[in-house]
Deep mutational scan, measured.
Amino acid sequence: MFYPNSPQTSPQLTQIPYGQQYAMMQRQIQQPYHPFATTEPQARLYPYHYQGPIQQEQGGFITQQSTAASPQYVQMRVTPVDQSIMSGYPNQTANGSSSSSFNYNIHPQQQQQQQQQQQQLRHHAMPVGSVPLQDDRYRKQLIVNYLAPDVTSTDLHELFSRFGELDGARIIYDKQTNMSKGYGFVYFCHAEDAKEAVERMSGYEFHGKWLKVGYSTNPLNIVPSNSSPYVHAGSRGAAG
């Protein structure tokens, strides 16, 4: 039997160049792979992502010199942007860049009308829970959420009447099932009393439920100042 490094198959040491006398086997001759043993700084910083320098080929596509990437890492192929796409944008300079302001050559009167329309939209648009300043009635009506099913309009009136005089209180019921929808409205005579009720009743436990109280901004629920107070009856038909 002959071994790869046996004296019968191995040459004389004098015939082997210096430095390879003890590297006779194939696994010894093959050098191990060192990912950080390279002179390129990109490979030292990113050993798993770097795959060699990027070269520009004919046709405008950018390719990489090395083989496919590892399945664990996804390499994105980048193509140059066609400058003709950006030619339609206004205020574009000769080098292809555009300024931040756009001039669509709008007539001054049209621009003024658009600004007025935007101001009107901001004036009428009102986020949930906010209180408008032009109508004091919005500051007097509250919406009470997360009410228990057994709470009546009379219970709601008695709960909030300790903060001040009320114009009314009612629970909203479903017309088909005649069941409470879980929320109601309270109408105060003074805005200061309503503000105190919002601050003190939010998070209050009532009939096993934690109440959420806020201003009601729905104009359909506003009680006119010259109208008669609501009837605080315990029956659902009268309260709904």
Rank of each mutant, 00 (worst) to 15 (best):
N5F: 14
S6G: 14
S6M: 15
S6K: 11
P7A: 11
P7S: 10
P7M: 10
T9R: 04
T9D: 09
S10Q: 10
S10R: 10
Q12H: 12
Q12T: 06
L13A: 11
T14C: 15
T14N: 11
Q15A: 05
I16Q: 13
I16H: 07
I16G: 05
P17L: 14
Y18D: 06
Y18V: 05
Y18M: 11
Q20D: 04
Q20C: 05
Q20N: 03
Q20M: 15
Y22V: 07
M25W: 06
Q26P: 12
R27M: 15
R27Y: 15
R27E: 12
Q28P: 12
Q28N: 14
Q28K: 02
Q28S: 07
Q28H: 12
I29T: 06
I29R: 06
Q30V: 14
Q30C: 12
Q31K: 05
Q31W: 15
Q31C: 14
P32E: 07
Y33Q: 13
P35A: 13
P35F: 15
F36T: 09
F36N: 10
F36V: 07
A37I: 14
A37K: 03
T38R: 05
T38D: 07
T38I: 08
T39I: 12
T39S: 06
T39G: 10
T39D: 08
T39Q: 04
E40G: 08
P41A: 10
A43K: 02
R44P: 08
L45K: 06
L45V: 14
Y46A: 07
Y46T: 07
Y46N: 10
P47V: 15
Y48I: 11
H49R: 05
H49A: 10
Y50Q: 06
Q51K: 12
Q51N: 13
G52N: 07
P53M: 08
P53C: 15
P53E: 07
P53T: 11
Q55A: 13
Q55R: 09
Q55W: 14
Q56A: 10
E57L: 15
G59R: 11
G60R: 06
G60L: 13
F61V: 04
I62C: 14
I62M: 14
I62F: 10
I62V: 14
T63W: 15
Q64P: 07
Q64R: 03
Q64N: 10
Q65A: 12
S66T: 09
S66Y: 15
S66E: 13
S66K: 07
T67N: 06
A68I: 13
S70M: 10
P71G: 06
P71R: 05
Q72F: 15
Q72A: 05
Q72S: 07
Y73M: 15
Y73E: 02
V74K: 01
Q75H: 08
Q75M: 15
Q75I: 15
M76H: 06
R77W: 15
V78E: 03
V78K: 04
T79A: 08
T79H: 13
T79Y: 15
T79I: 15
V81T: 06
V81M: 13
V81L: 04
V81R: 11
D82A: 12
Q83P: 09
S84N: 14
I85Y: 06
M86W: 10
M86L: 09
S87Q: 12
S87H: 05
S87K: 10
G88M: 14
G88Y: 14
P90E: 05
P90W: 15
P90Q: 11
N91A: 08
Q92C: 12
T93D: 08
T93V: 09
A94G: 05
G96T: 05
G96P: 05
G96Q: 10
G96M: 09
G96C: 10
G96R: 08
S97G: 14
S97P: 11
S97F: 15
S98G: 14
S98P: 08
S99F: 14
S99V: 14
S99G: 11
S101N: 09
N103L: 14
N103D: 01
N103C: 12
Y104P: 07
Y104R: 04
Y104K: 03
N105F: 13
N105A: 12
I106L: 11
I106Q: 14
I106S: 04
H107S: 04
H107A: 09
Q109C: 13
Q109H: 14
Q112E: 07
Q112R: 08
Q113T: 07
Q115K: 06
Q115G: 08
Q116W: 14
Q116I: 14
Q117Y: 08
Q117I: 09
Q117M: 07
Q117D: 13
Q118S: 07
Q119G: 10
Q120N: 12
L121Q: 07
L121H: 07
R122N: 13
R122M: 15
H123C: 11
H124M: 12
M126Q: 02
M126R: 04
G129N: 04
G129T: 09
G129Q: 07
S130A: 09
S130T: 13
P132G: 10
P132E: 06
L133E: 07
L133I: 11
L133K: 04
Q134F: 14
Q134D: 06
D135Y: 11
D135H: 05
D135I: 02
R137G: 05
Y138L: 01
Y138N: 02
Y138V: 02
R139P: 03
R139T: 08
K140E: 07
Q141P: 00
L142N: 02
I143K: 00
V144I: 14
N145D: 00
A148E: 01
A148M: 03
T152I: 07
T154F: 06
D155L: 07
D155I: 03
L156G: 06
L156T: 06
H157M: 11
H157Q: 08
E158Q: 14
E158A: 08
E158I: 12
L159T: 04
L159A: 06
S161M: 03
R162N: 12
R162W: 08
F163P: 11
G164M: 01
E165G: 08
D167P: 04
G168T: 06
G168Q: 03
G168C: 09
G168F: 02
A169E: 06
A169H: 01
A169Q: 06
Y173N: 08
D174N: 12
D174K: 01
Q176Y: 09
Q176V: 09
T177V: 07
T177P: 03
N178C: 04
N178Q: 12
M179C: 10
S180A: 13
S180I: 02
G182Y: 01
Y183L: 00
G184L: 00
G184H: 02
V186S: 00
V186M: 02
V186D: 01
Y187M: 00
Y187D: 00
Y187E: 00
F188A: 01
H190S: 09
A191N: 05
E192C: 03
D193V: 02
A194F: 03
A194R: 00
K195P: 10
E196N: 04
A197V: 04
V198M: 09
V198P: 03
E199M: 07
E199I: 12
R200T: 11
M201F: 02
M201I: 12
S202R: 07
S202F: 03
G203W: 01
G203K: 01
G203V: 00
Y204E: 03
Y204W: 06
Y204G: 02
E205N: 12
E205Y: 14
F206Y: 09
H207N: 13
H207E: 01
G208V: 00
G208E: 02
G208K: 02
G208N: 14
K209T: 00
K209Q: 00
W210C: 02
L211F: 01
L211R: 01
K212F: 00
V213F: 00
V213N: 00
G214K: 01
G214V: 00
Y215T: 00
Y215E: 00
Y215P: 01
S216E: 00
S216A: 00
S216K: 00
T217Y: 01
N218D: 00
N218A: 01
N218Q: 01
P219C: 00
L220C: 13
L220Q: 13
N221D: 04
N221W: 15
N221T: 08
V223A: 09
V223T: 10
V223F: 11
P224E: 04
P224Y: 09
P224W: 07
S225K: 10
S225M: 13
S227L: 10
S227E: 07
S227R: 10
S228V: 07
S228F: 14
P229R: 13
P229C: 05
P229Y: 14
Y230H: 05
Y230K: 04
Y230I: 05
Y230V: 05
Y230E: 03
V231P: 10
H232W: 03
H232D: 06
A233M: 13
A233W: 02
G234A: 03
S235G: 08
S235E: 09
R236V: 02
G237D: 02
G237K: 11
A238G: 13
A238Y: 15
A238S: 15
A239T: 14
G240C: 14
